[in-house]
């Protein structure tokens, strides 16, 4: 059934008018939806060294301060970050050519030197890791950077959800008593839906 010429003209006019009005309307609606939605972030924390403990907790605590909903899924070596005591986290310069080796004490010219010690030498010196860890802890302190324990506490206070991968807890022979309280022990199937709806999802 064909439209009469008059109807076709009206249809054309409506189409034209809608093309003019819709983009602005859609933009306005989208903005409204975006502004009313609480942003969310899901982090997967997989590293267990002192240096790599920072990114998840810095981002989580800051996002929570901005009013975001935040969850961290701790798995594999990331489990080290939820142990009751995190003061024994270590940093290894071994196999990490990106890490500057600088001294946290002495005059400025001395602190500025980058001690370019070959990896193979580092590997052969007993206790090198402990020395590097001590130096890094001192550098962190000197720079007014928070400790991991402090950032973790601030994250928890701000309502960051801690989710733990149950499989890796068993795999590495941990028990729930080794970790801080009030965490959820789940599998991948429980975490993925959280990640799915998050605006920001990071694998660290």
């Amino acid at each position: 059934m064909g439209a009469t010429p008059e109807v076709a003209v009206i249809d054309d006019l409506i189409r034209q008018r809608l093309d003019e009005l819709l983009p602005a309307k859609i933009e306005e609606k989208l903005k409204e939806i975006q502004e009313s939605k609480t942003p969310s972030m899901a982090i997967i924390a997989t590293k267990g060294t002192l240096d790599w403990a920072y990114p998840p907790f810095i981002l989580a605590s800051t996002a929570a301060a901005l009013g975001w909903d935040v969850s961290i899924f701790f798995t594999f070596y990331g489990l080290n970050l939820v142990k009751k005591d995190v003061s024994d986290l270590k940093v290894s310069p071994l196999g990490n050519p990106g890490m500057p080796m600088k001294m946290p004490f002495g005059p400025d010219w001395f602190k500025g030197i980058n001690w370019n010690i070959p990896n193979i030498v580092q590997a052969g010196i007993p206790g090198f890791e402990s020395v590097a860890t001590t130096l890094m802890q001192q550098t962190i302190k000197n720079n007014g950077v928070a400790s991991i324990a402090e950032l973790r506490e601030l994250s928890r206070e701000a309502g960051v959800k801690f989710i733990v991968c149950q499989m890796t807890v068993e795999l590495f022979g941990f028990s729930q008593e080794d970790f801080v309280d009030d965490m959820e022990y789940v599998g991948a199937a429980s975490f993925l839906p959280v990640a799915q709806t998050a605006d920001v999802c990071l694998f660290i």
Binding site: S61, A65, V145
Partner: peptide, 10 residues
């Protein structure tokens, strides 16, 4: 003063 990212914000 003396505090570094993200402590001032927190």
């Amino acid at each position: 003063r003396g505090l570094n990212c993200p402590l001032p914000i927190l």
